[in-house]
Design a protein around this nucleic acid. Structure first.
Lengths: 245, 245
DNA sequence: CCGAGTCGTTCCATTAAATGGAACTCGAGT
DNA sequence: ACTCGAGTTCCATTTAATGGAACGACTCGG
């Protein structure tokens, strides 16, 4: 099924910073003969996996793909429950919140809730972040055993720091970052899991550093924690530790 | 490229109300030999187009698909501009807003902004609605010529009503529905297009019928219209008509 | 503990599709 | 008119998809 893999490779190209693709982009990025690239994009177009932008030769993901992220959300009880909690916290405090999942060494947001404050962090849904460099990523990595993290980050320079940071997250019950990925932006994150499906998600709030002091931060952690604890109990997530603040 | 089409057909199954798929679901829904279904799902799994839920045999869209909706949004300047307008209106009035696109006789939301009011309409992103039965759909259909609508809905029972309704939308500059798709829920929608790419989107606000009178509705229409007019001017959308209220 | 039923995977010969080099088309820019 | 880059089409070769049938795993009711 080589076509499928090629098609998946094409779709992966959209991942990082590439808003659209042409035949020659695909040739360059994937090192594929251009006859193949041309036919592949055509077939993907006909299958609604891609569509052209206007009548140019540039391609973007097709309509078929639009609903799949929503289908993913709908397939998971955990995501639905977590969304309720974050949506409420986001509405109360006015900061942007999101739900994210880990995929190897990366995290992706699966749902976001725009804050309402005049100064708020714009959500970055659909953009992959390195798990070890974000609060939401570390809250998810902390759920892995220490060995699993070692295996995942074997040979990685940041492993020592990460190990220490994760044990702190495990002890505290939440992850925190201050101006780490983005200057002026802090984040808090708590993870929960569904033992029946082995999936884990992170509940995260991001906010402008200047607007929230430690007291305000702890208030939001408590709000997330309350909802997360209820979900953990309902689903039987025995690994959940209530945050200590 | 028959695999691609089969894969696309599988992905389409997630569209309506089907949160997960098994091999036999695929056999039943697509009438495919089960040997093929089994191998196809396996290949899609390996390409990250699907993933299993826990260690069961149930499949959902894979992580690869999660970012594609966001890539779609990023590829379109129009969607970005429209999102700003709806996000602001949603924050001001506290009602849920979304941006949607038309795909034949259906409309899909591509972005949503949860309202903050205690009583708010929960967004239905990723669920396809019949275009002729929703305000957002009619605001987009109104952009088509009358002949194009006739061609699209040839033989459809609702064509006469729809034609009349659309000419009203064209004249008013906005579409309105009161308790149409959902009891107790009203909606307003304004569409704009980017002539360079031939894409059109609808800016839509949905709100509880009981909470908003005509005056409040017109205020929101004016807010959307103001943002939409600015976008229409910037992009050169000559077909845009400013709402008359 | 057994057998019927359901579900998923694997095997294998047949058939159909993907592959990649080269030739061809189309526009844009000297 | 010529060239350059981008995209598509052609064709013989190779490779992968197909579907019937057999096989393994599991569940339910007796």
């Amino acid at each position: 099924m080589s076509v499928l893999n090629n098609a998946a490779d094409v779709l992966r190209c959209f991942g990082k910073d590439c808003p659209d693709l042409t035949v020659s982009d695909v040739v360059r990025l994937l090192g594929m003969p251009k006859a193949n690239a041309s036919r592949l994009l055509k077939a993907m177009r006909e299958a609604n996996m891609l569509e052209t932008i206007g009548d140019s030769h540039r391609h973007r993901p097709g309509r078929l793909m639009l609903d799949l992220a929503a289908a993913y959300r709908r397939s998971s009880l955990l995501i639905g429950r977590a969304s309720e909690v974050v949506a409420e916290a986001s509405a109360i405090y006015g900061h942007t919140g999101y739900i994210s999942v880990r995929d190897g060494k990366e995290v992706t947001a699966v749902a976001d809730f725009q804050g309402t404050n005049a100064l708020r962090v714009v959500s970055n849904i659909g953009r992959r972040l390195p798990a070890h460099l974000s609060a939401t990523g570390r809250s998810l990595l902390a759920r892995l055993g220490e060995e699993a993290v070692h295996a995942l980050y074997a040979g990685h320079g940041a492993l020592a720091d990460l190990t220490e940071e994760l044990s702190k997250v495990r002890h505290q019950g939440f992850a925190y970052s201050s101006q780490e990925a983005t200057p002026g932006v802090d984040a808090i994150a708590i993870s929960i899991a569904d033992p029946r499906t082995d999936e884990a998600v992170s509940l995260c709030i991001v906010y402008p550093h200047a607007l929230v002091d430690i007291k305000g931060r702890d208030e939001m952690i408590a709000a997330l924690a309350k909802g997360a604890a209820r979900i953990a109990e309902d689903l039987g997530d025995s690994a959940f530790v209530a945050p200590r603040i």
